[in-house]
Structures are given as C-alpha cells and as structure tokens.
C-alpha cells in the first residue's frame, strides 16, 4: 500500500467537505460537511502514525473525535436555538452581521 493512496483519499474527502460547507445553506448539512473534513484529517493522522511507527497520531485522532462530538453537541444546540427564534435554519437568513 502506498502512503499516497490514503492521503489522496483524505484530500478528496476534505475537498468534498469544503464544497459542502460553501454550497449548503441548511445549518445541519453544514455541520455534516464539517464532519467530513474532520474525518479526512483523522485519516491523515493515522496514515502518518503508521508511516512513522509512532502512536502520537492515534492519540490526536481520538482527541479529534472527542472534540468533534463536543462541536456537534454545541452546534446542534445553536441550531435549535436559531430555529426556535427564527423558524428557519437556513444560514443565509441569519444576516444580522451584514456590513
């Protein structure tokens, strides 16, 4: 197995995630796209851990999973709150910061 096949898979997932973040306006779907990005990073970390024969990558992958869980929890809490106040979760309607 080549190092690059895993890294390429990770970059493809990353770019798809970036596309999702840009293209979607439903807040829940944006959160899902962010999960794609986080997972691609995890694949990278574990690939390098295997390549370098260290376990540091595993530790960080686990930390990323935990942070992602926290992020989803808070993110969905925010989405719920927005929905309750605005009756929509389309981020394009949340333009109070318009300059």
């Amino acid at each position: 197995m080549y190092v690059n096949q895993f890294l390429f898979l990770a970059s493809v997932l990353f770019c798809i995630g970036v596309y999702g973040v840009i293209a979607r306006k439903n807040a829940v779907l944006i959160l899902m796209s962010i999960e794609l990005i986080l997972n691609s990073v995890n694949i990278n970390l574990l690939t390098f851990a295997l390549r370098n024969g260290s376990t540091d990558g595993h530790t960080f992958a686990l930390y990323i999973i935990a942070v992602a869980a926290a992020e989803v929890g808070v993110g969905l809490g925010l989405v719920l709150l927005v929905y309750r106040n605005k009756k929509t979760i389309s981020v394009d309607d949340l333009s109070e910061m318009r300059g």
Binding site: F6, L9, N42, I43, L46, A49, L50, H58, A61, L62
Partner: peptide, 10 residues
C-alpha cells in the same frame, strides 16, 4: 480504513 491503518482502537 482505520483498521487497514492498524488502528483498531480508533
């Protein structure tokens, strides 16, 4: 893929 990368626990 993690299993292929020898990372069972992850």
């Amino acid at each position: 893929q993690y299993i292929l990368l020898a990372a069972e626990f992850v």
